[in-house]
Structure formats: structure tokens, C-alpha cells
């Protein structure tokens, strides 16, 4: 994810082999030897003569693009949609302070609390087994258990809710 917002007006011209993107300030970028079809996970091309390969995946209104260690969600919009997009309230990160999430995918060996029970910070609430290792999941804060997600024997995904506090 690129921190902060970077919005750029570009004009796109498509001339046979070459694909040009011109920024608002007039700076042109030339893509040549593009090797990509819809559905392919790798986008290969040369940018101003320099070869690169990016991992690409369609995402809401655009693409998720990774080049080496840099990952970004890039939206491609008409000027009008971009203007409207600006007016959208920023997405709030989900409030996870009342949740205990599984830190890893694995098998629930035991779930040691039940709804209505009060739990102290640091208390073990569950044991999740992954890679043959049992991991004790502890509460990070105190609270009263509202619901428990999985039961012993269930498989859980990473970030799946184990316990919700009231």
C-alpha cells in the first residue's frame, strides 16, 4: 500500500506496439513490448526501455500491483469518477479491539472460555495448532465474553475471530 494519496491526471495514447501515458505535467512514459492478456498474473513490458515484470491482480476499480517488494492498489478512473471518488469518506479500519483473532491458520485444539465469562488480560482463551506447534492465544485486555467463534476441532483462517467481547 502506498501511504498517502497520489492522484495524477494522465492522457493515454495507443499507437500499435507502443503505449504512451502522458502525465498532466507533460512528462511521457512509454511502455513497449507489453506481454499481458486479461487473466495473466504477470505483466511484462519495458518502461522507457527498462524491462520489468509486475505481479498484477484485478481489484476494486483497478488493480493490485506488486513490483518486487512494493505493493499498491492502483485505481484507473475517468476525471469525473475520480472527482466523485475524492468525496467518498475514507474507509475506516475495522475495530478489532473487542475481538481476539487467530494469528495464523490452524486447528483449534481447545477454546477455553464461554459466553458470559469474564476474562483477565493475559488469560489463555484458546489453543491453536499450526505446523505441529500448539500456540496459546491469550486475551490482550480484560472483558466479558460475548460470543465465541469456532469450537475445538474446527479449522480457522488467519485473522478469523476466536472470541468477541461484549
Amino acid at each position: 500500500m502506498i501511504a498517502g494519496h497520489d492522484q495524477r491526471l494522465v492522457r493515454v495514447t495507443n499507437g500499435g506496439e507502443r503505449f504512451a501515458v502522458t502525465f498532466e505535467d507533460g512528462r511521457p512514459l512509454h511502455l513497449t513490448e507489453i506481454d499481458w492478456r486479461p487473466g495473466l498474473p504477470l505483466f511484462k513490458a519495458k518502461l522507457d526501455g527498462k524491462p520489468f515484470t509486475a505481479s498484477v491482480k484485478p481489484a476494486a476499480e483497478g488493480f493490485q500491483i506488486r513490483h518486487r517488494a512494493a505493493l499498491a492498489h492502483v485505481l484507473v478512473l475517468t476525471p469525473r469518477s475520480a472527482e466523485l471518488h475524492q468525496k467518498l469518506p475514507p474507509k475506516q479500519a475495522a475495530d478489532t479491539s473487542k475481538l481476539i483473532l487467530s494469528p495464523m491458520p490452524g486447528l483449534v485444539v481447545s477454546l477455553d472460555v464461554e459466553p458470559g465469562q469474564s476474562v483477565q488480560a493475559g488469560q489463555a482463551v484458546a489453543v491453536v495448532e499450526a505446523m505441529k506447534m500448539q500456540n496459546i492465544i491469550r486475551a490482550e485486555r480484560e472483558g466479558v465474553v460475548k460470543t465465541v467463534g469456532p469450537k475445538a476441532g474446527d479449522s480457522v483462517a488467519a485473522d478469523e475471530v476466536l472470541v468477541e467481547f461484549a
Binding site: 494522465v10 503505449f19 512514459l29 505483466f43 513490458a45 509486475a54 498484477v56 488493480f63 500491483i65 484507473v76
Partner: peptide, 9 residues
């Protein structure tokens, strides 16, 4: 490259 690739795609 991300901007250019996104536009091309």
C-alpha cells in the same frame, strides 16, 4: 511503472 501498467491493462 505501476501507473503505466494499470493504464495499459
Amino acid at each position: 511503472l505501476m501507473a503505466a501498467a494499470a493504464c495499459a491493462m
